[in-house]
């Protein structure tokens, strides 16, 4: 399969919903582009067994064992609290005792055993919910989510290094693409870009409808123009509102509130077009703004493991 041509098509048009289940597996690197149908079926069967094995690790923890396993109880408790408040207005997850919410929970607890160092962090359930909705299969949703976390794990690390790298990259991109807006942020003590934290952490999940986010994510996951296309989206949206931001003299607090309230107001097609144009204008200089290993680039491996954590991991 010609991955570049496919990714280009997806970048410019998204994927018909009936095809998402297959296409996302490639976009998320769960399947290799040059694999055969037989290889993929074999892989799926192997991965299903592997998933069940990891899941049984925590499913077999008895009540008495759990009493002596604080970290497990706390993680599971945090996940239990979050899955019941993730996308509950989407029919697939709505209503009391919805079995899909249980699957969401099981995948996240299993992931926290698969990647014990990273564990569970708020925001993960936001990523998983559309993936499970598309996959309609527990094991495949798990492995697609795990693949995505290979790239975005840094967003959720305790030291928040992945987030800081992205916000720094964003700052440099604004400096390159809109120096006067950058100056405004500098003069108003806004250079930490924390007002874009939610945009970056969960890739605009809270800013668009469920249907729109599936489209946006597949566009982002093509990595067609840049692995960091989401940062160009941030720049594009900020530029769209630059006159208001500067004209109204927004300080950090006002800006944060303004950005949070843009949720549901952003035109997705325009935002993608703006980002594409900015990406083209920035060229190599844009890529140079972003430090190597910045999510969603693959992390730079070190001897100590990918997710160095302090002891009090939750």
């Amino acid at each position: 399969m010609d991955s570049k041509a496919l990714r280009k098509k997806i970048f410019y048009g998204g994927v018909d919903h009936v095809l998402r289940k297959e296409v996302w597996k490639f976009l998320l690197s769960y399947h290799e582009y040059d694999s055969t149908q037989a290889e993929r079926e074999y892989l799926a069967a192997m991965k299903r067994e592997e998933y069940e094995a990891i899941k049984s690790q925590w499913k077999s923890i008895s009540t008495t064992q759990a009493k002596r396993f604080t970290k497990f109880r706390e993680r599971k408790g945090l996940i239990d609290k979050d899955v019941v408040r993730t996308d509950r207005s989407v029919p697939y997850y709505e209503g009391d005792d919805n079995p899909n919410v249980i699957v969401l929970r099981d995948i996240l607890v299993t992931y926290s055993f698969y990647n014990f160092d990273l564990g569970y962090c708020q925001g993960m359930s936001d990523f998983l919910a559309p993936i499970l909705y598309v996959m309609e299969d527990e094991s495949e949703a798990f492995w697609c989510f795990a693949s995505l976390m290979e790239r975005l794990g840094g967003n959720f690390n305790r030291d928040q290094n992945g987030m800081h790298a992205q916000l720094l990259g964003l700052s440099k991109l604004v400096e390159l693409l809109d120096p006067s807006l950058h100056n405004y942020f500098r003069q108003n003590d806004c250079l930490n870009y924390f007002f874009c934290f939610r945009w970056v952490l969960i890739q605009f999940k809270r800013e668009f409808s469920f249907d729109q986010i599936m489209l946006l994510w597949e566009v982002l996951w093509t990595h067609y123009f840049s692995e960091h296309f989401h940062l160009y989206l941030c720049v594009g949206i900020l530029k769209r509102y630059r006159l208001r931001i500067i004209g109204e003299g927004m300080d950090f607090d006002t800006l944060l509130k303004f950005i949070n309230e843009l949720s549901g107001q952003i035109n997705i097609d325009r935002a993608i077009q703006d980002a594409e144009a900015l990406c083209t204008i920035a060229g190599e200089a844009g890529a140079d703004c972003i430090p190597p290993g910045t999510p969603p680039s693959m992390p730079i491996e070190t001897d100590g493991g990918l997710y160095l954590q302090e002891d009090d991991v939750l």
Binding site: K81, D82, R85, T86, R88, S89, Q122, G123, S125, D126, F194, F197, R198, L201, I202, R206, D253, L256, K257, N260
Partner: peptide, 11 residues
């Protein structure tokens, strides 16, 4: 019952 987990901050 349907507040989402807060990401970042809001006021």
């Amino acid at each position: 019952n349907q507040y989402k987990a807060t990401i970042g901050a809001d006021f």
